[in-house]
């Protein structure tokens, strides 16, 4: 199986190219009349290959195949940070980003919140979760309540652990900054989509002496978190965090599938670089254009 998995990226890349070269021109002939948008077939192929890879690795994981996932120090630090908060008798502050629930970063953050809530419930450490959007509030409350209930700590759960603070970015930030200075949380965990407030929050947390862990897929905010936080999850590490914390093979399968596609993309980029360098890459470039 392991040997196969090494040649699979090459085989699928070949298949991918074959589809582009043969199927697309045939379908494109009657593109104007058909209900199917043949000009978007390249995207469809990518979606299918990607889905197949994720599902295949998930299946292998289900069957018991050991999947290696590198250590992510920022995620390992979450447990350590909650432990520190428990020792100090201070709360853990978790912010699931400042974006709506339809943003995938927020969903990832809510998943991580579920894991963090399990740890805080286990140690009975106070948890504070200020949110910016009502739907995030509903999802956050559900996730935290479930974590406390599953660990038999229903009595320790309070509906106001997750609270709506303000809908406006800076009103939210000033409220949370005030919370940081008054409550002095032992740990601040920032996960999800952050914007201009990233440094305002992280610097205040730093001034309050909290241990800080951040994770965002927004490249523009990474420098601020790196400067002011102890650990930072970058890009896809945020999406990996929930699977990593759960340690469930089913979830880890998704991560491996994603890595596999990344290898394919790297191969495709290299092919493109070579072709374009030799000035014969026009046709190849067109394969990736979407109408």
């Amino acid at each position: 199986m392991l040997k196969n998995s090494k040649i699979i990226p090459i085989l699928i890349t070949a298949f991918f190219l074959f589809l582009f070269l043969t199927v697309e021109p045939v379908l494109a002939r009657d593109s104007e009349e058909s209900a199917f948008r043949t000009e978007r077939i390249n995207a469809l192929v990518l979606v299918l290959v990607f889905s197949a890879a994720v599902l295949l690795y998930t299946r292998w994981a289900k069957q018991g195949k050991t999947l290696f996932v590198r250590k992510i120090p920022g995620i390992d630090a979450v447990e350590e940070a909650v432990g520190r908060a428990t020792e100090m008798g201070k709360p853990v502050l978790f912010i699931p980003g400042l974006q709506e629930l339809d943003d995938i970063e927020t969903i990832a953050a809510i998943s991580i919140l579920g894991r963090v809530a399990r740890i805080t419930a286990q140690y009975e450490t106070p948890l504070l979760v200020p949110v910016r959007y009502p739907l995030v509030l509903a999802a956050g409350q559900e996730v935290v309540e479930q974590a406390y209930t599953e660990l038999g700590k229903r009595d320790a759960y309070n509906r106001d652990i997750v609270r709506y603070v303000a809908g406006e970015q800076m009103a939210f930030t000033s409220t949370v900054n005030g919370m940081m200075m008054r409550e002095r949380p032992a740990a601040n965990i920032f996960m999800g989509a952050f914007f201009a407030e990233s440094l305002l929050l992280a610097e205040t947390g730093n001034a309050a002496g909290s241990i800080q862990i951040a994770g965002t897929a927004r490249p523009e905010q990474l420098p601020f978190f790196i400067a002011a936080c102890d650990y930072t999850l970058m890009g896809e590490e945020l999406y990996a965090a929930s699977s990593y914390l759960s340690k469930e093979p089913l979830m880890l399968g998704g991560l491996k599938g994603q890595d596999f596609i990344k290898i394919i993309i790297v191969i495709l980029i290299l092919i493109g670089v070579i072709l374009v360098s030799f000035n014969v890459g026009g046709w190849y470039y067109k394969l990736f254009e979407m109408a």
């Binding site: 998943s111 897929a217 089913l250």
Partner: peptide, 29 residues
Amino acid sequence: GIIIGAALGAASMSLRIILGIERTYMGKG
């Protein structure tokens, strides 16, 4: 590099949600 990685992460997460593999956002799993 970061954008491609993050986009793949988002796509993989979306797929897991659509197929019901990832349910932690509902408090399950």
